[in-house]
């Protein structure tokens, strides 16, 4: 009736060469190669080009960017991005809640209305706004018909045109990440808050807002980094009157043949978007860890 006498565990035999590991490395190889050769190295070279002068390292290209004119250009890019992001958020945040509540056909229609513009070419949409905002375009016709203005107002090639177009093109990028979070929001949490004595406003501010924060952060970061580097929209809707970092970079390479200066402007633009992404990642983490 005693327990059987168990021999001591045998010494550990080192496992055979890990085939799975080598297989995994082989699988990841091609994509990693593309990433290194066609992404990391070109970026490193871009950075090098921005600080390379005829006699070694120089910051002269960056000094050019620090002049009032180019500081204005950088501000133009930031202003475009901030306005676009802000307006897109004001429309997109409430719209996401309606989208999350929609069911059946209505939801399909709304999702299609989001996806089609997302899939449609940026150039096609920007082109449409050039038609709409012309002095004899539809917007003016409607404004005059409604008696809001007496004669056609100039809209194309104004900042209004630029912002309208940019919000239009980037709005889906605000709505979709927020919608993804709102759709998964457990409605019972709001009910739980109500049973704990929270008024609808308090429940929204203390429960719903914090829970949708990851979506907000993702949407804001996405729209900001897309609009700060937008090229087609300012080119078609405002042109030379509103130079941005993007149009400046393109000009430096395609017309002015100033690759060093263009590279420096590119690094600045990259720094701005990376800051936005890093900030959002950090905010998202601290928001998620609560």
């Amino acid at each position: 009736m005693t327990a059987t006498e168990l021999p001591a565990p045998s010494p550990v035999v080192s496992p055979a060469p890990d085939r799975e590991r080598w297989l995994a490395i082989g699988f990841a190889g091609p994509a990693t190669l593309v990433l290194v050769v066609l992404f990391a190295l070109p970026l490193a070279l871009l950075f090098t080009a921005s600080v390379a002068g005829p006699a070694g390292l120089t910051l002269s290209e960056y000094e050019k960017l620090a002049t009032p004119h180019y500081l204005g250009v950088i501000w133009n890019s930031l202003r475009l991005a901030l306005l676009t992001t802000g307006i897109a958020f004001l429309i997109g945040y409430p719209a996401s809640f309606a989208l999350a509540r929609a069911r059946g056909v209505l939801r399909s229609v709304m999702l299609a209305a989001l996806f089609l513009p997302l899939a449609a070419s940026v150039i096609v949409k920007a082109f449409a706004w050039t038609i709409l905002l012309r002095s004899d375009g539809l917007v003016n016709t409607v404004l005059i018909a409604l008696g809001i203005v007496d004669e056609p107002i100039r809209m194309i090639f104004t900042e209004t045109a630029l912002i309208v177009g940019a919000v239009n093109i980037f709005l889906p990028f605000m709505i979709l990440p927020i919608y993804a979070v709102v759709a998964q929001l457990d409605h019972r949490l709001v009910e739980a808050a109500a049973t704990l004595g929270a008024s609808p406003v308090v429940a929204f501010v203390r429960v719903v807002m914090p829970l949708t924060l990851p979506g907000i952060i993702a949407g804001v970061a996405l729209v900001f980094s897309l609009s700060v580097s937008a090229y087609v929209v300012p080119t078609l809707l405002i042109g030379e009157r509103y130079p941005t970092l993007s149009t400046t970079i393109a000009k430096a390479f395609l017309l002015a043949r100033q690759p060093g200066f263009g590279a420096a402007a590119g690094v600045v633009l990259l720094a701005i978007t990376l800051t936005a992404v890093a900030l959002s990642a950090r905010l998202g983490r601290s928001g998620g860890s609560r």
């Binding site: 409430p94 449409a128 709005l171």
Partner: peptide
């Protein structure tokens, strides 16, 4: 308050859908 908020959400969604559709219809 809640119903007002929901109404506002639907209004924003309607505006967004129309706004997004306008350039496509124009083309």
């Amino acid at each position: 308050t809640a119903r007002l908020a929901i109404g506002f959400a639907w209004l924003a969604a309607l505006a967004a859908v129309l706004f997004l559709a306008v350039p496509l219809l124009t083309v």
